[in-house]
Simulated assay, not measured.
Amino acid sequence: MKTVKILICVVLSALAFAACSDTETYADQKKKERSAINRYIANQKIKVISEEQFFAQDTTTDVSKNEYVLFESNGVCMQIVRKGCGEKIEEGESTTVLCRFNEYNLIESDTTLQLTNIYQYAWLVDKMNVRNTSGTFTASFDTRSSLMYIRYKTAAVPSGWLVPLRYVNIGRPTKEGDEVAKVNLIVPHSEGQDDAARYVYPCRYEITFERGR
């Protein structure tokens, strides 16, 4: 009887250990996230530049060299494909910004679309209500016109989406040659949408910004 009890204890201990081993900690999740980001950067031959170099280049990234600037404070990597027409959102200004985007989950795949209003849902342009308060941008999605709101059930705009607003122009094309701003982003979970924050995965985005009416 004593031997049976010992065997039961051994089996239960083994099961408990296996359960603990299968449980992914937050640290494990962040490590997997970092690996996914590094893998994408390596696969795409991205040249990561510092903020110092970015500012020395007049807040531009050389697309021909596939440059992305890394913002150390939040881990967001940004490539400015087009600065865009029009003007920047001024301090104290509130405006609407229209966005079209592709979203990819870098843990799952860097080529499979997770969400888009460029291909699917092309009729639905995400509208953000944006305010610039002393250089700090805040924004919310218009719940009447937002694929992000429909998908993630929150009007909160991912912090990573706001990073480019300091550096690109938000205008509307009015003449031949005018183009809206376009950026590529690598956004860690801490700066991402609700699911990314909850399940700890990074996303890459292709986003265009256009001033609303």
Rank of each mutant, 00 (worst) to 15 (best):
G171N: 12
A19V: 07
K47D: 15
K88S: 14
L147A: 04
E52Y: 04
Q120I: 02
F17N: 11
S109D: 14
W123V: 03
M78C: 06
A18S: 09
Q44G: 06
R211Y: 02
W161A: 12
K5W: 13
D126K: 02
L98I: 05
K182S: 12
D28N: 07
L113T: 05
I6K: 10
A56Q: 15
Q193E: 12
N117R: 00
A181H: 00
S64Y: 03
Y167G: 00
I46Y: 07
V97P: 00
T133D: 13
E51I: 13
E191F: 08
Y68P: 04
Q29H: 05
V183T: 04
A155I: 08
K127G: 09
T138V: 13
N184P: 02
A196Q: 10
V11F: 11
R172T: 13
C9G: 08
S73T: 09
S146K: 02
W161I: 10
V76T: 12
S13P: 10
V168S: 00
V163I: 14
N38I: 12
N132A: 04
E206M: 14
Y152P: 05
R82A: 14
A181R: 01
Y199S: 06
I118R: 05
E67W: 00
L12G: 10
K30I: 11
N43D: 01
F209L: 06
F137V: 09
M128V: 06
Y149W: 07
N129E: 10
R151Y: 10
L115K: 04
S13W: 07
L147N: 03
R213D: 14
Y121K: 10
I46W: 11
D126F: 00
E52D: 12
C203N: 09
M148L: 13
T59N: 15
A36C: 14
L124F: 10
E103P: 00
V63T: 14
P188D: 04
F71C: 01
S145G: 12
A181D: 03
S146V: 01
A197M: 15
V180D: 04
K83D: 08
E176Y: 15
R204W: 14
D194H: 05
N105K: 06
Q44K: 15
Q120E: 02
T116M: 01
Q120K: 12
D28R: 11
R144Q: 09
P173G: 13
A42L: 09
I170N: 02
K127W: 10
V11P: 03
L124P: 01
F54Y: 08
M128N: 02
G135K: 02
P164F: 01
K65A: 04
D142A: 11
N132G: 10
L115M: 06
V200T: 12
W123K: 05
K5H: 15
Q44V: 08
Y104W: 12
A122K: 01
V69D: 00
P202E: 03
Q114M: 15
I8W: 14
N66G: 01
V157G: 03
K88V: 14
V63W: 14
D28L: 11
T25Y: 04
R172V: 05
I107Y: 11
C9V: 09
N184D: 00
E91C: 10
T61W: 03
V125P: 00
G75R: 06
N102K: 02
G192V: 05
T133Q: 13
E93G: 08
K127P: 09
G160F: 03
I207W: 07
R211K: 13
